[in-house]
Nucleic acid binder design. Structure first.
Length: 830
RNA sequence: GCGAAGGUGGCGGAACUGGUAGACGCGCUGGACUUAGGAUCCAGUGGGGUAACCCAUGGGGGUUCAACUCCCCCCCUUCGCACCA
């Protein structure tokens, strides 16, 4: 056997072998416990990067581990293949987005295969394939039927230079991520999904995920959903039939509401100023605010700006007129886009009132002092006693809250309500490379859904698009010209496509039955595999993707297609791969390409390093020397095996006499079993792969020390065989190629991947003798070697009579002796 | 401002429910083998001190026989959210 292992040859061979034997094909089997291991599928940008390698190595470790533990594992892979970069590439390289995408997929698939990942490639899913996205359209139509998808006019992020709508995440500090133009707010019609209908359940179920999800992801989701309990109140507008609806969490301050603040987008503004002398001025002001960068406009420290629109509403309890203002800090998308301003008890309203000389009315007095509007320097937002609020004067505001709302409700002023920060999800994109929204606009019938039988609405692939400007599909009559499904009149297709987060919201359902041609997936098979037992991916998806897909899952459940409430039981958010203290990025020039690394060290080394360098959820600092170290470890295993293979072949580790081992041999035996215990626990319970690997390293060190040369006695050889086999079994999920190769060379005909995970004998995990630390006043002064589980009294006497201990205790009164069994003795002296 | 996570050798990181701080790896130092070594093997490696010992887990208090671990205050780093009515 060669002194060095040829990883290239070995890895290629084992990858082929797994492929040929269909080792990782997943089939439903109700007799075995299932384990669905999901990793976030990549966007096919061209090449895999270190973040992918880390994500997929962790997923592979867990998949292979649970396979060996006896689980029926589903470990699939696919491609999040729609998205704007394909259009940019088309523009730059003059190739079709589809060509670019599929070329990238082919290349990246080969890269993943070279990592030796245990995917069931038969279940591969590609979102830009009509066989996939037709079911996007189908799901959209089901949502439409149920009123969960609707079209509305709203303000969106608009890039004037690209002439397109941008998603919030594509706006970087107020600028277009592509051309760095200032992003404006523009009113545009678009399709929305009513995720807000599920806000309460999405929030409540965060509690059920607490065991398997990182706390911070749940907190982020809870904050994002942002539940507030309060009331919706109605303020009649003077000299008008209109009323302004307001959401407030502080209905107790209603008697102190002295003016109204409206968001510049608020539709009532236009209505109320129409025909008034100040109409032009007010509209110009609104326009100016809307043109302003929204981040700046609504930033915390931003100056309060506003303008009275010249109309007033009436406070429904005090009957006082409340001038209506436009205010820059009021957000149209939260609550109702209108705020009842209570300057005495809300800091923002206070600042606004001071800036424009508006009246301040105190209605809650603190218990320890008396507020006066003239002397206040900030709003009083704490609890207190209600004043100037006739029916409730003298009562404590918090205690009166419920009665107060009931009163307002009885008066027809408002009602109890809950408001969420979560907004409905706008999915329309004026882009080409995405799923066409299956709607047809007819002059007579309005928006008409494409009949199910006509799905998919196919995205044309071969048109000479100019992707530089507005909505390519809207430039293509061949695409949009159609007839109304209802009345047959000439009609026009929706030319917007879906946000790509739509695609990724249910891909893991599709994996369970990817070949389905009559429905998105087979509910029977989906219910066998779901929920996902372990999801692994980057923290950057903490809100968007993870919230959207939870929402989709609940909708699919309500459609009767799945029967669990939550899609992911456990979530592991892996840290970033960083170099020189910064995230790897082309712009920073600190990118390490996984491919060249695999070429130089092999996949096993790369995988080992990724798992060893840091615990999975923490950022991983890239280290070339660390990779070298991982490589050396694998080489040492190879050399150790090379020395012993001949003398170990043919033995059976399970049928060997181990009784006649010397002390050193027994110690090795104990190390083997303790290592199994530690590694199993570290992987299964603690998700600490770095310490699992360090335990395996310690085992190798022990074996090398025990047998630098081949052993001759049968018992010793049997022990060595047990040690080496255990090493390989434990290493199988980490460095699968090397482990499989040596396993075979040991004479096994069955694949290592099909082998059962080793179990440990509890009897062997404890040693006969242990080292007991003896402290005097908490400082280590001596060490005793005593039999395991020695009697406390015995240990106590041994410690007290120990020579080194007596040096510290002689002449002093022993006040106390603490004995921690099998750990230490602490002698406390005066 | 609010929320979350984290601060341990020269570096990445260990220390499970309070019980030997620094496992494992990298790096470094010395040695062996060698024509050579960036290969491999052996030994050493938190700081101070000749030594006995002393000091060390961001800083300061506290609880305890015993604190990286628990409690209080403060500092720093990273990440979310950020005028949410």
């Amino acid at each position: 056997m060669d002194e060095r292992f040829d990883f290239h040859e070995i890895e290629t061979r084992w990858q082929q072998r797994w492929d040929e034997k269909e080792t990782f094909r997943a089939r439903e089997d109700s007799t075995r416990p299932k384990f669905y291991c999901l990793v976030m599928f990549p966007y096919p940008s061209g090449r895999i990067h270190m973040g992918h390698v880390r994500n997929y190595t962790i997923g592979d470790l867990l998949s292979r581990f649970h396979r060996m533990r006896g689980a029926n594992v589903l470990h699939p892979m696919g491609w999040d293949a729609f998205g704007l970069p394909a259009e940019n590439a088309a523009l730059e390289r003059k190739i079709l987005p589809s060509t670019w995408t599929y070329d990238n997929i082919a290349y990246m698939r080969s890269q993943l295969k070279r990592l030796g990942l245990s995917y069931d490639w038969e279940r591969e899913v590609t979102t830009c394939d009509p066989a996939y996205y037709r079911w996007n359209q189908w799901i959209f139509l089901k949502m439409y039927e149920r009123g969960l998808a609707y079209r509305k006019l709203s303000y969106v992020n608009w890039c004037p230079s690209c002439e397109t709508v941008l998603a919030n995440e594509q706006v970087e500090s107020g600028q277009c991520w592509r051309c760095a133009s200032e992003v404006a707010q523009k009113e545009l019609p678009g399709w929305f999904l009513r995720i807000s209908d599920y806000a309460e359940e999405l929030l409540a179920d965060c509690g059920r995920l607490a065991d398997g999800w990182p706390r911070r992801v749940l907190t982020m989701q809870e904050n994002w959903i942002g539940k507030s309990v309060g009331a919706e109140l109605h303020f009649p507008v003077i000299d008008s039939d209109a009323a302004i609806r307001v959401f407030t969490t502080r209905p107790d301050t209603l008697w102190g509401a002295t003016f109204m603040s409206l968001a510049p987008e608020h539709p009532l503004i236009r209505e109320l100023v129409a025909g008034t002398p100040q109409e032009q001025e007010v509209l110009a002001f609104c326009d100016q605010l809307l043109r302003q960068n929204k981040i700046e406009r609504t930033a915390v420290g931003a100056e309060k700006r506003g303008m009275p629109i010249g109309r007033a509403a009436r406070n429904p309890v005090t009957q006082q007129p409340m001038p209506i203002w436009v205010a820059n800090f009021v957000l149209m998308e939260y609550g109702t886009g209108a705020v009842m301003a209570v300057p005495a008890h809300d800091q923002r309203d206070f600042e606004f009132a001071r800036a424009y000389g508006l009246p301040i009315q105190v209605v809650i007095q603190p218990l320890d002092r008396r507020l006066a509007p003239q002397t206040m320097t900030e709003a009083y937002t704490d609890a207190g006693t209600l004043v100037e609020s006739p029916p409730f004067n003298g009562r404590r505001n918090l205690e009166a809250m419920e009665d107060l709302i009931t009163y307002l409700q009885a008066q027809g002023i408002g009602r109890r309500t809950i408001s969420y920060r979560l907004r409905d999800w706008g999915i329309s994109r004026q882009r080409y490379w995405g799923t066409p929204i299956p709607i047809i606009f007819c002059d007579r019938c309005g928006a008409v859904p494409v009949p199910e039988s006509e799905l998919p609405v196919v995205l044309p692939l071969d048109l000479p698009f100019d992707f530089s400007s507005k909505s390519p599909l809207s430039q293509s009559p061949a695409f949009y010209e159609t007839s109304c499904p209802r009345c047959q009149a000439p009609a026009r297709r929706e030319t917007d496509t879906m946000d790509t987060f739509f695609d990724s919201s249910w891909y893991f359902h599709r994996y369970t039955s990817p070949g389905e041609t009559t429905r998105p997936f087979d509910p029977g098979r989906a219910n066998y595999w779901l929920a996902v037992d372990q999801y692994i991916g980057g923290i950057e998806h903490a809100i968007l993707h993870l919230l959207y897909s939870r929402f989709f899952h609940k909708v699919l459940r309500d459609l009767g297609m799945v029967n669990v409430d939550e899609p992911y039981d456990r979530l592991l958010t892996q840290g970033m791969v960083i170099k020189d203290g910064a995230k790897m990025a082309k712009s920073k020039g600190n990118v390490v390409d996984p491919e060249s690394l695999i070429a130089r060290y092999g996949a096993d080394t790369v995988r080992l390093f990724m798992l060893f360098a840091a615990p999975p959820e923490r950022d991983l600092e890239w280290s070339e020397q660390g990779v070298e170290g991982a490589y050396r470890f694998l080489q040492r295993i190879w050399r150790f095996a090379a020395i012993h293979l001949d003398s170990l072949r043919g033995l059976d580790r399970r049928k060997v006499p181990l009784d006649d081992l010397d002390a050193e041999g027994r110690d090795v035996k104990q190390t083997i079993h303790r290592t199994i215990k530690r590694v199993t626990h570290d992987i299964e319970r603690r998700y600490r792969f770095n310490t699992a690997i360090s335990a395996v390293m310690e085992l190798l060190n022990k074996l090398l020390l025990y047998a630098p040369e081949p052993k001759s006695r049968p018992a010793e050889r049997a022990l060595l065989r047990e040690g080496l086999e255990t090493l390989l079994l434990l290493l199988a999920p980490i460095a699968p190629h090397l482990a499989a190769e040596l396993w075979e060379r040991l004479g096994h005909t069955a694949l290592l991947a099909d082998e059962a995970w080793p179990s440990f004998e509890p009897a062997y995990t404890t040693t006969d003798e242990i080292e007991l630390v003896v402290q005097v006043n908490g400082k280590v002064r001596s060490r005793l070697s005593v039999p395991t589980d020695s009697e406390e009294e015995e240990v106590r006497q041994l410690a007290l009579t120990d020579e080194k201990v007596r040096r510290w205790t002689d002449g002093k009164a022993v006040r106390k002796v603490i004995v921690v069994p099998n750990r230490l003795v602490n002698v406390v002296v005066a």
